[in-house]
Design a binder for these strands. Sequence first.
DNA 1: GCTGGAACTTAGCACGCCCAAT
DNA 2: ATTGGGCGTGCTAAGTTCCAGC
Length: 746
Amino acid sequence: MSGDHSHNDSQIDSGSRVNDSHKHKDKYKDKEHKHKDHKKDKERENSKYDNSDHKDFSEKKHREKEKERIKHKDGSTDRHREKDKRKEIKPKKEKENGFSSPPRIKSEPDNDVYHSPKSLKRERDHDETEFKPKKIKLENDKLDKKAKKRKQDEDIKPKKTQKNKKGEVADGKKKAKKEPEEKWKWWEEERATDGSKWSFLEHKGPVMAAPYEPLPSNVRFFYDGKQMKLSPEAEEVATFFAKMLDHEYTTKDTFRKNFFKDWRKEMTSEEKSKITDLKKCNFNEMGEYFKVQSEARKAMTKDDKLKIKVENERLLQEYGFCIMDNHKERIANFRIEPPGLFRGRGDHPKMGMLKRRIRPEDIIINCSKGSKQPKPPTGTKWKEVRHDNKVTWLVSWTENIQGAIKYIMLNPSSRIKGEKDWQKYETARNLKKCVERLRNQYREDWKSKEMRIRQRAVALYFIDKLALRAGNEKEEGESADTVGCCSLRVEHINLYPEKDGQDFVVEFDFLGKDSIRYYNKVPVEKRVFKNLQLFMENKQPEDDLFDRLNTSILNKHLQELMDGLTAKVFRTYNASITLQQQLKELTSPDENLPAKILSYNRANRAVAILCNHQRAQPKTFEKSMQNLQTKIDAKKDQLSDAKRDVKSAKADLKVRRDERFKKAVETKKKAVERLEEQLMKLEVQATDREENKQIALGTSKLNYLDPRISVAWCKKWGIPIEKIYNKTQREKFAWAIDMAEDDYEF
DNA sequence: GCTGGAACTTAGCACGCCCAAT
DNA sequence: ATTGGGCGTGCTAAGTTCCAGC
């Protein structure tokens, strides 16, 4: 098949968040399904969602090329702003934010105030006014020149071959002083080869969650109609619930049950004996109180808002950066997650449970031995301080809902993330080189005598053709019932020897990651079809489709086929190759800028559809669409008026050939043109928005599309990169923007 | 090989800011 | 000046992969 990646059957059902539509819950309840040759016969919770409402969202051709151009939104403004901002930044030679520069460790009065936004106090008053980003601005032309581009293709490979010179590790420390952080091109430097992720790391630790502030006494809680003063612990948990009062979560049984159970754990024994029924709890005053508070926050004066902004900026400056190997790098999430009620996605069995407050004693700090260690808040201790340079995280703790470890890591613009990202796309490009071979291989394997090989081959076909996720097994009852390729169950597909004029159609319908529904009808090759029939023989709906396969088996196999190959590489590969090919197809040289950008968005959209990146239709969608339509209609009226004006002006001109009338005609014509352009923009905007209402472009842009493809496209067509990537994205993809030329081929 | 833990990427949603239209 | 809504951003949940220890 090779090229047959036509995903035009992808359909996104408007009712795609299926979690609530369990109309046929008990569909399979009574069936006996002990299946002998089946490895696990789990007693599945029979939460089957209802399939009956698939709207066949019939291929509005709107995804294909056609009509109009995209709205023109001028993105260039924020660039100017950026520049302006930079001008204000004062070069600062000394240490920044109290970081000692790598080699020496300078101690400094420690902020022994609890690190929470509220209570944080300024230490050094002389700095008080300086909340602006204090980046070192140091134009460094030498570096730029010296590092002149090598040919990009060689350049790109992770430099495995290069021996790590002994001095390399320490080298960061030497040239500490004048590193122009803003322009550091880590991609022109060599990578460590010894598995270490850094050699020096210093940071200020996390910002703890703000402590609980008890409610004012006039905000009351009622149980069974009677007022009741809650202990601070119980009250805090109650406020979590109160804050969510008008969220539909609080109506869900599981949520309420879990909440109540965990809440009771926080109660005094007295409270526990009184409060026995959630239904009798009245949180309204509390809920109201928070609503008023948030209203008040919105209504704050400019000044007060500015103060908050300043404070946030200060916190960011102090805690939002670390020094890693001589460079100041941005931290992604430097705040400890505050306590609250767990909100799982989809039908999560643990929704509503109490996410407990993280104390310093729960927190592990990771940093350099020689660095200035972050101080725990006074009177507290970290759980541990370790110095592990084989990992990238700065801070970690174990969360109480799933027992998972949470991390504080660096921003995507950091070297450590960027290198990894780059490498990911290189692996995907390697796959491109051998994908035909692999495809031939798995097609051969469809005929294998061994069931496990056939299953492996069919699964791989799906992963390749449909960009499905690998699909690890999940522990039942621990999370929502979602699947990926390897964990598909019989109930998730339907086979049609013939459907809608096509042969061998497989209909997929399952909940994937984040309980996003995947619904798709795809014609497959006959052999695949026959194999699927075989795999499904004598199985119950809740049995695994690929009972001889899991992700570890699959990935082991893939690893043998190509170095670094895993299931998810196919998603990256197919997403990127689709973008490249779609861009080629959709971009027409003589279209104007907005039209080109619409083409880009459509190419992006094709990928998002392939990867099933959905979003809830914005709540305001209908209304905003209507508004837009109103505007369009108004514009049309204006236009026809203007046209009429032109006509009459022309008529006047005919009667009296006068310079003044001539001018009038010109002016009127101009007006018509302007209106036409405006109208077109609006219409393009409408199209784009309509096409996009349930599709999220961001995820693929950020995670799947080799940014060099986009950069090359921009260069080729003279599109400013700002039209494609916003500021954050440009920071993340700085490496690609710097290195890709207009002829870059994925 | 299997299991569970650790580390890291990928994901959608909520919210608030900002800007354009009124 | 006000308002509406689009967009960027933060947040954190939910995946994948790797690996150590049996």
